[in-house]
């Protein structure tokens, strides 16, 4: 059944994710560093919300593995967290879609916090828990940047007719 629907614009999804990876790896000055939004998680939430039948838990998990490799983290740390985020998003996408942008941003903040919490747990279990309170800052910056990201990705999706 899935094969018969015409999917197109897969490259847009891939490109947006590649850009998210690049933004994650981009060097930032020392102080600002801790405020880096969770780019990959945000872009993933968007695609899970917009096209839940295309971007699912499996893809999220694989992206997480790639993120682990890129960041030198323990295998599975980001994979588990991203897969769970994708799961929650796919469960709630119908509600998320009709929310006003501000409310969406707050929900995204919560989701990124769940993501951070999972990462924190895993790090704690491995034995290197981050001590600073700035660990939670990505959730806040993700919330602030969400409306812009949402609008940009929505326009891109409409322009290239990604379905």
């Amino acid at each position: 059944m899935m094969q018969e629907q015409n999917h197109n614009g897969g490259w847009v999804i891939v490109l947006s994710l590649v850009i998210a990876f690049m933004l994650t790896a981009m060097p930032l000055p020392d102080g600002v560093d801790a405020w880096r939004p969770a780019w990959v998680a945000m872009v993933l939430i968007y695609w899970c919300m917009a096209l839940p039948e295309r971007v699912g838990i499996g893809i999220s998990w694989m992206l997480g593995i790639l993120l682990d490799v890129q960041q030198g983290a323990v295998f599975g740390q980001n994979a588990l967290a991203l897969a769970i985020i994708a799961y929650i998003t796919i469960k709630s996408y119908q509600r998320l879609r009709v929310f006003p942008l501000i409310q969406q941003a707050i929900i995204v903040c919560c989701y990124v916090m769940i993501y951070q919490l999972l990462v924190l747990w895993i790090k704690g279990m491995i034995g290197v828990p981050p001590a600073a309170w700035t660990f939670w800052m990505p959730a806040v910056t993700s919330m602030v940047l969400w409306p812009w990201l949402f609008i940009i990705l929505r326009d891109v999706r409409r322009k290239y007719k990604v379905v």
Partner: peptide
């Protein structure tokens, strides 16, 4: 010039 995992020194 690539950022790795935050709060680790890599």
């Amino acid at each position: 010039a690539v950022e790795m995992e935050p709060d680790r020194h890599l």
